Simulated assay, not measured.
Amino acid sequence: MDSITQAALGATVAGAIAGKRCNGKVLLAGALLGTLPDLDVFIDYGDDISNTVKHRGFSHSLLILLPFSLLLTAIIERIKPLEDWSFSRLWLLIAACLITHPLLDNFTSYGTQLLWPIPGYFSLSSVFIIDPLYTLPLLISLAVGMARKASLSRYCAIALCVSSLYLAWSLAAKLYVEQRTIASLDTLGIKAESVFITPTPFNTLLWRIVVLDGDEYWEGLASVLDTNQQVEFIAQKRGNWPLSVEPEQLQALKTFTDGFVRFDQQDKQLVVSDLRLGMFGNLAFKFVFAEQDRAGQWQAILPTRLAQGELRGDMSKLKDRALGDQQINASLDLCPSPCGLNTAH
Rank of each mutant, 00 (worst) to 15 (best):
L82M: 12
D84P: 01
D84N: 13
W85E: 00
W85L: 04
W85R: 02
S86C: 04
F87E: 00
S88K: 14
L90Q: 06
L90S: 07
L90P: 03
L90W: 10
W91C: 06
W91Y: 12
L92F: 14
L92M: 15
L92D: 02
L93I: 12
L93Y: 07
A95G: 10
A96L: 10
L98A: 07
I99D: 02
I99W: 07
H101E: 06
H101M: 03
P102F: 11
L103C: 02
L103W: 07
N106G: 12
T108H: 05
T108C: 01
S109D: 05
Y110H: 01
Y110I: 07
G111L: 08
T112E: 02
Q113S: 11
L114S: 01
L115P: 02
L115D: 08
L115N: 07
L115S: 11
W116M: 00
I118K: 08
P119A: 13
G120C: 09
G120P: 01
G120Q: 09
Y121S: 05
Y121N: 03
F122Y: 14
S123W: 08
L124A: 15
S125V: 08
S126G: 10
V127M: 10
F128E: 02
F128D: 01
F128A: 06
I129L: 09
I129P: 02
I129C: 02
D131H: 14
D131N: 15
P132D: 08
L133R: 09
L133P: 01
L133K: 06
T135K: 00
T135D: 01
L136P: 02
L136C: 08
P137Q: 09
P137R: 05
L138N: 02
L138F: 15
L139R: 04
L139A: 09
S141Y: 11
S141V: 13
L142S: 06
A143V: 15
G145N: 04
G145C: 06
G145I: 08
R148A: 11
R148K: 13
R148N: 13
K149A: 13
K149C: 05
A150N: 12
S151E: 11
S151Q: 12
L152Y: 08
L152P: 00
S153K: 04
Y155M: 08
C156I: 12
C156A: 14
C156T: 10
I158W: 12
I158S: 04
I158L: 11
I158H: 04
A159H: 05
A159I: 11
A159K: 01
L160P: 06
L160Y: 13
C161I: 15
V162A: 14
V162S: 05
V162L: 15
S163I: 12
S163M: 09
S164M: 10
L165V: 14
L165I: 14
L167P: 03
L167E: 04
A168P: 00
S170W: 13
S170I: 09
S170K: 05
L171S: 08
L171G: 10
L171F: 14
A173G: 06
K174V: 10
K174E: 03
Y176N: 12
Y176A: 09
V177Y: 07
T181D: 08
I182K: 11
I182W: 13
I182M: 10
I182F: 12
A183N: 12
A183M: 08
A183L: 08
S184L: 05
L185G: 02
D186V: 11
